[in-house]
Amino acid sequence: MHTLILHQTPIEYRNESSQKPPQNVQESAQISAEQILQAAKNNTATLWRGDFHQGKQLLAALKKRVRKPSKPAATPAEIFHKHRLAQSQQSREINMLLVEVGVNFTVDLPRAPDVQAALLDVYGVANTEAFLLPFNQLLGFIGAHEWHKQGVPISALGGDKIHVPFGVFSPLRGEYLDLVQQIRLPENCHTAFDIGTGSGVLAAILARRGVANIIATDNNPRAVLCARENIARLGLVNQIKVLQQDFFPDGVANVIVCNPPWLPAKPTSAVETALYDPNHSMLHGVLREAAAHLAADGELWLIMSDLAEHLGLRDSGSLQQWFAEYGWHIAAQSHTVPSHRKATDERDPLAFARQKECTYLYCLQKNSFQAA
């Protein structure tokens, strides 16, 4: 736990990012974005004491000031790394504007909304002592809470919704879910493991396809709770069990499905671990260990994008090489192109790569397969 000194008294500082906390904090009810940035250079955060909506306007002005065009880069990988570095630096500066959250998740500012439900969604239990939080993250929590209540309709589930709270990866990219719904199942497929289940959406799709016994695992407690709630909401508790653990449960399955992080880079927050994984460590772990957890003639289903290749972060053909090195061959595969907003946004610094991206579902079988 990190603390700052406010009125000569320690107060907890919370930040969902891995950023280092500021050393000092100043208070203000009237300050400019430029003054906040000047204080930030001295590692001093600003605690907002003014009107809530004026604070939102100040935050918007702060974002405009910190979002500067990055310097030209020579290679796709350099473009990506400079973009990530710029995002990190900008996020830290934006998070230098703080708000105090009182006991039971109250915000004592003029025109402040009731944020108790949103913060309960994030932290699980009410706080008994005040803490400081980046204003921008508070707004993110509020927005995530609304998305959680609203839910995301999933075409592969017939339009039924998956509800996702802050801190769990949301299945907004429906195209890869359709691949799992459409690909043929192995014969006599009775059991499945969903590794890194997140919201539980892949397990739900397999259950709707008739797989009778599914175990879904995740090491993120927020994801485990989220998946259990979604499974219950969809009426699939008799088919799916959700466990909090790394990788594989005991026993064997006819199908193991995994959607590992697609980009080999360092995450900067818990939710980013669904997107970024240095050196593809989860992918290698699954390829190395999955065969011991497959029934005879079972299949490992991997969902992977080729975005890393277009960004120069992975050599073309590396996936197929790794499959061979770990003793797998491709029994079937399908692919699709992204339909999300960023795929067609020319303002995105990574648009040059996103426009070429394909997402693949690889159905892998072990060479000279022997039952575990």
Results as ranks from 00 to 15, higher is better:
Cys258Glu: 01
Asn238Glu: 14
Gln57Asn: 14
Tyr176Leu: 14
Val211Lys: 01
Gly327Lys: 02
Phe369Ile: 05
Glu34Asp: 12
Met96Arg: 04
Ala192His: 02
Asp121Leu: 07
Tyr276Ser: 08
Arg84Ile: 09
Gly55Arg: 04
Gly235Phe: 11
Tyr176Thr: 14
Ala74Tyr: 06
Asp51Phe: 00
Glu289Tyr: 09
Leu287Phe: 04
Asp306His: 02
Gln333Phe: 14
Arg14Ile: 09
Ile11Leu: 15
Arg49Gly: 11
Ser199Cys: 04
His335Glu: 12
Arg288Met: 06
Ala332Asn: 15
Glu16Pro: 12
Leu361Ser: 11
Asn136Phe: 12
Glu146Gln: 15
Cys189Pro: 04
Pro110Glu: 04
Gly251Asp: 10
Pro165Met: 05
Gln365Ile: 01
Val255Gln: 05
Gly285Ala: 13
Glu34His: 13
Thr217His: 08
Ala33Thr: 03
Trp147Val: 09
Ala295Lys: 09
Ala227Ser: 08
Thr273Ala: 09
Ala351Gln: 10
Ala77Val: 11
Trp328Met: 00
Arg67Cys: 13
Gln333Thr: 13
Asn367Lys: 12
Gly140Asn: 12
Glu93Asp: 12
Ser334Met: 14
Ser199Leu: 02
Gln35His: 10
Phe248Trp: 10
Leu364His: 05
Arg341Gly: 05
Ala343His: 11
Val107Ile: 13
Arg314Ser: 11
Glu27Ile: 15
Thr128Ser: 13
His83Ile: 07
Ile205Cys: 11
Asn259Gln: 07
Gly159Lys: 08
Gly167Cys: 07
Val224Asn: 03
Leu294Pro: 02
His163Ile: 02
Asn259Tyr: 07
Ala223Ile: 05
Gln244Ala: 11
Asp51Pro: 00
Arg184Thr: 13
Val103Asn: 12
Ala216Gln: 09
Leu4Asn: 10
Val237Ser: 15
Met282Glu: 13
Ala118Met: 07
Leu361Gly: 11
Lys63Asp: 09
Glu129His: 15
Asp178Met: 15
Leu132Asn: 00
Pro267Ile: 06
Gln150Ile: 02
Ile5Trp: 13
Glu100Asn: 06
Arg184Gly: 07
His7Cys: 11
Phe80Ala: 05
Ser316Cys: 12
Ala223Lys: 02
Val25Leu: 14
Arg65Asp: 09
Gln365Asp: 02
Phe323His: 01
Ile231Trp: 04
Gly102Met: 06
Ala204Ile: 04
Glu175Lys: 08
Arg65Val: 03
Ala212Thr: 15
Pro171Trp: 01
Ile154Gly: 02
Val237Pro: 03
Thr46Cys: 06
Gln181Cys: 08
Arg184Trp: 08
Asp250Leu: 14
Ser28Tyr: 03
Lys149Asn: 02
Leu311Arg: 03
Pro153Gly: 05
Tyr176Glu: 12
Gln26Ala: 14
Val152His: 03
Gln19Gly: 10
Ser88Pro: 07
Val201Thr: 13
Gly327Gln: 02
Ser269Thr: 07
Leu202Asp: 00
Gln355Pro: 04
Gly140Trp: 06
Asn219Ile: 15
Ala40Ile: 01
Pro349Trp: 05
His310Pro: 03
Pro338Thr: 05
Asn238Cys: 03
Gln239Ala: 14
Arg288His: 12
Thr191Lys: 15
Gln90Thr: 10
Leu85Pro: 05
Ala112Trp: 08
